[in-house]
Measured scan of single mutants.
Amino acid sequence: MTEYKLVVVGAGGVGKSALTIQLIQNHFVDEYDPTIEDSYRKQVVIDGETCLLDILDTAGQEEYSAMRDQYMRTGEGFLCVFAINNTKSFEDIHHYREQIKRVKDSEDVPMVLVGNKCDLPSRTVDTKQAQDLARSYGIPFIETSAKTRQGVDDAFYTLVREIRKHKEKMSKDGKKKKKKSKTKCVIM
């Protein structure tokens, strides 16, 4: 069974824990209790493949930012979460993405942009803004509501699919490099 290491990042209060708990335990946590770091595991079937999701729910508070490099190193894919009623959390996505790329030393890291709290009427981040940002990053965008469960499975499952595509691409690139290195030079 394939294991996928997913990391949920975003500013404090955007609903990272609520999304994760909704996926794992099928219930909505409405009281806000700032996370330092929590880890969850769940076995699911995605596109006919049974897999184990190892999900790291991270601290959004700035005082825990020193811990970010460590979990970013171990993560295979990242859910970059903002709240649709919090423009600052949307603007912060850029910083999370840049930090992930720096730590992973790669421009090509599996990510999904997630606009959470889409059940709320007080939207300050337009869907088109988020779609445009995701398009500019070359990553999928999904709106979710941890409260109603809308888009929750889709967000995590899409990230797994992005990781699969990335692994497939990397193995193809690896095979191309191996083929090239088999060419021999004969000096007579």
Rank of each mutant, 00 (worst) to 15 (best):
T124I: 09
Q25S: 07
A11E: 04
G75A: 15
D47F: 01
D126C: 09
L6M: 07
D38R: 07
E49R: 06
N26W: 02
S145F: 04
D173V: 06
V81N: 03
K42N: 07
Y96D: 01
K16A: 11
V45T: 09
V186L: 09
L133H: 02
Q150A: 08
D132E: 15
K180I: 15
Y32C: 11
S171F: 14
Y64M: 11
G151K: 08
N86K: 02
T127R: 10
D153M: 15
C80D: 00
G115A: 13
S89W: 03
P34K: 03
G77P: 00
R73E: 14
V186R: 03
K180F: 03
Y32H: 12
I55K: 04
L23E: 13
V45D: 09
K169G: 09
D33V: 10
K117H: 14
T158P: 01
Y157W: 11
K175W: 03
G138M: 02
D33K: 07
L56T: 14
T20G: 14
I55S: 10
I84S: 15
R73L: 07
M111A: 01
K169T: 06
Y4E: 06
C80G: 02
A146S: 09
K176M: 10
D30E: 08
P34W: 03
N26E: 06
H166W: 08
L19E: 08
G115V: 10
H166T: 05
T74Y: 09
G138F: 01
Y157V: 15
E143D: 14
D92R: 02
R135P: 04
L52N: 13
R73T: 10
E98Y: 01
S181H: 08
V152P: 03
E107H: 12
R41N: 08
P121N: 10
M111W: 05
T58R: 07
E98R: 01
F156G: 03
D132M: 08
Q61C: 09
S39N: 10
I46Y: 04
K88F: 02
E107W: 12
G75L: 04
D30S: 08
E107K: 04
T124C: 11
E76L: 15
G138K: 10
E63M: 04
F141K: 05
Y137W: 15
N116T: 15
A59E: 09
Y157P: 04
C185K: 15
I100N: 05
K176I: 04
K172L: 14
L6E: 00
K5D: 04
E91Y: 05
V44C: 08
D47M: 01
T58I: 10
I36G: 10
M72D: 06
K167P: 02
F90E: 10
S39A: 08
Y40A: 13
C185Y: 08
V9I: 10
P121I: 08
K178H: 09
F156H: 01
K16C: 05
P121T: 12
S89G: 04
D126Q: 08
I142C: 05
D173Q: 15
L6R: 01
K180G: 13
H94A: 12
K178N: 14
Y96W: 13
R73W: 06
I163T: 09
K16V: 04
T124N: 13
G13F: 08
K184F: 00
Q43L: 04
A83I: 00
E76Y: 11
I36W: 06
D105C: 14
C51N: 10
V152F: 11
R164H: 07
L53N: 02
M188D: 15
R68L: 05
T58C: 12
K117S: 09
S106A: 08
Q150V: 13
G138A: 05
H166R: 13
T35H: 07
S145L: 04
V81E: 02
K167Y: 04
F78I: 10
V7N: 10
S181K: 04
E162N: 03
G174V: 12
E76N: 08
I187C: 14
T20L: 10
G15C: 00
D69Q: 05
G174F: 01
E37A: 09
G15S: 00
A130S: 06
D47T: 03
F156T: 02
G60I: 01
H95C: 07
D119T: 01
A155V: 10
S136H: 06
V45K: 13
K184E: 15
I21D: 15
G15V: 00
V112A: 01
K167Q: 10
K172C: 08
M111P: 00
N26D: 10
S39L: 05
E62M: 08
E62I: 08
K88A: 09
K184W: 00
Y157N: 12
G115M: 12
D105T: 04
K175C: 13
G77I: 10
C185R: 15
Y96G: 01
Y32E: 11
T50K: 07
I100A: 02
S39M: 07
E31F: 08
T35S: 13
E98S: 04
F78M: 01
E162C: 08
D153F: 13
V14K: 02
S17G: 08
D33E: 13
G174I: 10
P140F: 08
R41H: 09
D69H: 03
I55C: 09
R41Y: 07
L159Q: 00
K172G: 15
C51A: 05
Y40N: 13
G174K: 14
K88E: 10
V152S: 04
E143V: 06
S65V: 08
M111R: 00
A134L: 02
T144Y: 02
G138V: 02
S181W: 01
M188F: 03
A146G: 12
D132S: 09
A155F: 01
V45P: 07
G48L: 02
Y96N: 08
T87F: 04
L23M: 11
K177M: 12
I36P: 13
D69N: 04
G138Q: 13
F90Y: 08
K128G: 13
L53R: 01
E162G: 03
H94V: 13
L120T: 11
K88M: 13
A66I: 11
S171L: 13
E76M: 14
D38S: 08
K167H: 07
R135N: 12
E62R: 07
D119I: 00
F90N: 01
I139L: 02
G60K: 10
H27F: 08
S171W: 13
G174H: 01
A59G: 13
K165C: 04
V109G: 01
Q22G: 11
D132F: 03
M67L: 10
V81M: 12
Q150N: 14
S89A: 07
K172W: 07
Q61H: 08
I24R: 12
A11C: 07
H166E: 05
E76S: 10
I84Y: 15
F78Y: 07
S136W: 07
V9K: 02
G60W: 04
I36T: 12
D57Q: 04
I55Y: 08
M72R: 04
A130N: 04
R161E: 10
D105V: 08
S106T: 09
D47Q: 05
K16D: 00
V45C: 11
V45R: 08
Y32I: 11
Y4W: 05
T74Q: 13
A155Q: 01
R135H: 10
Q129W: 13
K101T: 03
T158K: 04
L120E: 14
R123K: 11
R102H: 03
P121G: 14
L159D: 00
D154P: 04
E49T: 11
P121D: 13
F141Q: 05
V44S: 09
T2D: 10
Y64W: 07
K176L: 11
N26M: 05
D38F: 06
F90S: 04
I55P: 07
K165Q: 08
C80V: 15
N26P: 06
P110G: 00
G60R: 08
T158Y: 11
T2V: 07
F141G: 02
M188S: 15
R135G: 05
D132K: 07
K182Q: 08
K182G: 13
L120V: 07
T2E: 12
V103C: 04
T2Q: 11
